[in-house]
């Protein structure tokens, strides 16, 4: 993975000075320590997950209720909630991130470009609780009208059903609040800058020669983008989106602030009440006994494995794309 393949460092031989030996020893020590700390988290989670999986079996993944007192415990509902929030987030974040990345790399005036890049970075640094407040206090009162409109006009799609009458003279506003839809919009704000940064990075590596060639052949700017920039950056588009999906799945606070927890399998994203794995952990850790705690840790482990798989896949896709492998012009 060394970036420079042209000049490889020579092999160092001979005896080493004491300071070098101390340096290597210390660096290796720190490395092993960090390996121990980070690795132990994964091992600990897996170790805690084992008895829970053994006790509840596959039912852990199919049971939707979370009532440990009755011996019924499962993550089906929260898993569905996690994914519905994440997919709503991607539905908004993907087109906006792609559009913004293309704007920054192809349209923005040179002087404004670096400002834009900084602003997107700033957007990534804004704490998630601020986005939670934004979603809850500023967005929710407006979005419930959109939810109602979607319900009125598109309720033949099962996702957009809400169990209330949308055309009633006094419509039940509270049925549309605290939904996966609104939480998803807040999460979209959080994952958007990440997707945008990866996409922009890849777009900016598009070979200038190919872009110029497209323009010289008489292409419009959009034609050039479609023929050169997007095919070149396909790896980055997919990879960046998946990275942001991984982030969206694990997001806690913005979601917890907005949703009201419900443990039912509910594909109706506009309706009040849903829950995510992280929301489950945040809500239930306080009163958990040791077995419940290991059940929560199992849920956390499942979440971690999912995000890990998605991130790994994203990294492979980003590096596989033509954009990862240098240019031939």
């Amino acid at each position: 993975m060394q970036p420079a393949e042209l000049d490889l460092p020579r092999e160092l031989g001979g005896s080493r000075s004491p300071s070098d030996r101390i340096f290597e020893f210390t660096a290796r020590g720190i490395g092993i320590m960090v390996l121990g700390i980070t690795g132990s988290i994964g091992v600990f989670l897996a170790y805690q997950a084992y008895p829970t999986i053994q006790r509840y079996g596959l039912g852990f993944f199919t049971e939707s209720a979370w009532s440990p007192d009755q011996g019924k415990l499962g993550i089906a509902a929260v898993l569905l909630g996690t994914f519905s929030v994440a997919f709503v987030a991607l539905f908004f974040a993907f087109p906006l991130a792609l559009g913004t990345a293309l704007y920054i790399s192809e349209y923005a005036p040179p002087r404004f470009k670096s400002t834009c890049v900084s602003l997107i970075d700033l957007m990534a640094a804004v704490p998630s609780i601020i986005y939670g407040l934004w979603g809850f206090f500023l967005l929710q009162p407006h979005v419930i009208h959109v939810s109602r409109w979607l319900h009125q006009n598109l309720s033949f799609i099962p996702f957009f059903k809400v169990e209330t009458d949308p055309d009633a003279a006094v419509w039940a506003q509270t049925r549309y609040t605290a939904s996966a839809f609104i939480a998803g919009i807040a999460v979209a704000m959080m994952v958007l800058p990440m997707a945008c940064a990866v996409m922009r990075e890849v777009f900016s590596q598009t070979p200038v020669g190919e872009k110029e060639a497209a323009l010289a052949l008489g292409s419009t700017r959009w034609g050039m983008i479609r023929a050169v920039v997007i095919p070149f950056g396909r790896g980055g588009i997919i990879g960046g989106t998946m990275l942001s999906l991984g982030r969206a799945l694990g997001e806690t606070i913005a979601v917890v602030l907005i949703i009201s927890p419900a443990f039912v399998i509910k594909p109706r994203i506009l309706e009040v009440g849903t829950n995510t794995i992280s929301g489950l952990i945040a809500g239930r850790f306080g009163e958990a006994t040791s077995t419940q705690l290991s059940a929560l840790l199992t849920a956390g482990f499942v979440l971690f494995v999912i995000t890990l798989l998605i991130n790994t896949l994203a990294a492979i896709i980003v590096s596989r794309g033509r954009s990862g492998a240098g240019t031939d012009i």
Partner: peptide, 15 residues
């Protein structure tokens, strides 16, 4: 280390 960047912050807290 790269794998652990995928660790959701709430799971780190729970750990």
């Amino acid at each position: 280390v790269e794998a652990m960047t995928a660790l959701p912050s709430i799971v780190a807290g729970l750990f």
